[in-house]
Design a protein around this nucleic acid. Structure first.
Length: 478
DNA sequence: GTCGGTAGGT
């Protein structure tokens, strides 16, 4: 039965190949006029289509600095700007800093910021928020707070952007209790009025720690406070629900978002829901969702297909997963390292380590470079097969190739060690991990091994609860 | 005139 549904799904994707490939190239209005609305979903899709026609897709004006994509160019521009007299406006500097941040050169950006301060270029709340963001992205949120203090003596009034950035930094570092405290303090002392991004950041943090109920509570609080939730708010919660296999609750929110709030779903919404359905083996509904995407003219992207590759692999249908990749290639889409990582993962899951190795070895000829996830997948495969020696070799292979094991690599290795009863070695590896500055825990790491929670924050592990939403509201009105 | 957020691996 399952295999029949899967081949049906495969055939469906094959049939829709052209649509999926070309849809982005056509103007939206043409889509709508030529849209073939399916019978089963007709009212649903008509409604969604009407939302589409109301959505405006105006593009924002771009600064000349957004075109800068090379770090050297940016640095040269900075040197030139800082010598110019009179000095260019702070806005120009901010745009340049922002461009450097977009390139993810956070340390470099901080260096430029420091130079601005030393040279006497006036900095404002924009420059401050960029500098704080850089600290946070480098897992140096405390330095971000230090910069917040600088705001005060530079007479810069911290705004909702600055506080959102700091909140995001705390969430990134798993400091959820501090994040919650900061959020409530901001509200209570009226330091700033949270906007949708700040709520979304807090919701993301709650979801990261599996607190969906609280996340939904915050969604309701937003409503009460007159802050309009957006597609990101819903996507974050729906994704979390899907990950917790609470797909029906996710669909309830989906309906609420579309029908009650009139918010248009995007490709991320559908990818999350499809992923949730796949994980529960609800293949018929996966087909339906793909069809609905077609009807509302949202084209699946690489990530959507990777979810399907993943799903087929997990069903043991690795050949079908390979077929999906072939379809992607035929459509002119270029599977990336993520796609192949998923496939390698699939073979590892079945214990077919030699096949996994074959795919791994083929990466270079495809012009792809294995990343830390590639190695982690193989490592996981060896751990699952209790081949801890080979797993250890893979672990060392990562550093040899100039990559850094991340939290998932460590967690995988740790779980492998636990499984073969080498708990002492696991604890030593955990300490090594912390010593290496590995402090960010992703949600599945926390879920996969309760002992981590104990090791990171005994308060949380002991059931030290986050305050109920009702009390947040009380605080608000005080 | 600028800045922030959502989907992949244990």
């Amino acid at each position: 039965m399952i295999s029949r549904t899967i081949s049906h799904l495969l055939a469906f994707i094959k049939l829709r190949g052209n649509f999926f490939t070309n849809s982005f190239l056509l103007p939206l209005q043409n889509h709508l006029s030529s849209s073939r609305l399916g019978l089963e979903f007709s009212s649903h899709t008509t409604f969604l289509a009407s939302l589409h026609s109301n959505s405006n897709s105006s593009s924002h004006p771009r600064s000349k600095f957004q075109k800068v994509t090379n770090l050297d160019d940016a640095l040269n521009m900075f040197d030139e700007m800082i010598q110019r007299r009179p000095l260019p406006s702070v806005v120009q500097f901010n745009q340049l800093l922002n461009a450097v941040t977009k390139m993810k050169h956070f340390s470099c950006c901080l260096h430029l910021f420091k130079q601005m301060c030393v040279t006497g270029v006036p900095v404002d709340e924009y420059s401050m928020s960029i500098a704080i963001k850089c600290c946070c992205q480098l897992y140096r949120t405390n330095d971000g707070f230090a910069l917040l203090c600088c705001c005060f003596w530079r007479a810069v009034v911290p705004d909702v952007f600055i506080f959102s950035t700091l909140l995001d930094g705390l969430v990134l570092e798993d400091r959820i209790l501090e994040a919650e405290r900061l959020f409530k303090k901001l509200i209570k002392h009226r330091l700033c009025e949270p906007n949708v991004v700040m709520y979304n950041t807090m919701i993301k943090g709650l979801c990261k720690f599996g607190n969906n109920v609280m996340a939904i509570g915050l969604l309701r609080l937003m409503d009460e406070r007159g802050c309009k939730a957006d597609v990101v708010t819903y996507n974050t919660i729906m994704d979390s629900l899907c990950k917790d296999k609470m797909i029906d609750d996710a669909f309830k929110l989906f309906k609420e978002m579309v029908f009650e709030k009139g918010i248009l779903p995007n490709v991320i919404t559908y990818t999350s829901l499809i992923c949730g359905l796949c994980n529960l083996g609800r293949w018929e509904e996966v087909s339906k969702m793909l069809k609905e995407m077609e009807d509302v003219r949202i084209s699946p992207n690489l990530q959507t297909f990777t979810v399907l590759v993943d799903a087929f692999c997990k069903e043991g249908k690795v050949d079908d997963a390979e077929a999906v990749i072939d379809i992607m290639v035929e459509r002119g889409e270029v599977p990336n390292i993520v796609t192949y990582n998923t496939l390698i993962d699939g073979y590892c899951l079945r214990g077919e380590m030699s096949k996994a190795r074959t795919v791994f070895d083929s990466l270079t000829s495809r012009g792809l470079v294995p990343n830390v996830i590639t190695y982690s997948s193989l490592l996981n495969g060896y751990c699952k097969n209790l081949n801890i020696e080979e797993a250890m070799l893979m672990f060392h292979e990562i550093t040899k190739n100039g990559l850094k094991p991340d939290i998932v690599t460590f967690s995988t290795m740790l779980q492998g060690l636990f499984r073969v009863g080498r708990c002492g070695a696991a604890r030593r590896l955990f300490d090594e991990m912390r010593a290496q500055g590995q402090h960010c825990f992703c949600r599945s790491a926390l879920k996969s091994c309760p002992r981590f929670l104990q090791w990171i924050n005994p308060k949380l592990a002991a059931g030290w609860c986050i305050m109920p939403i009702s009390m947040w509201i009380d605080n608000y009105s005080k």
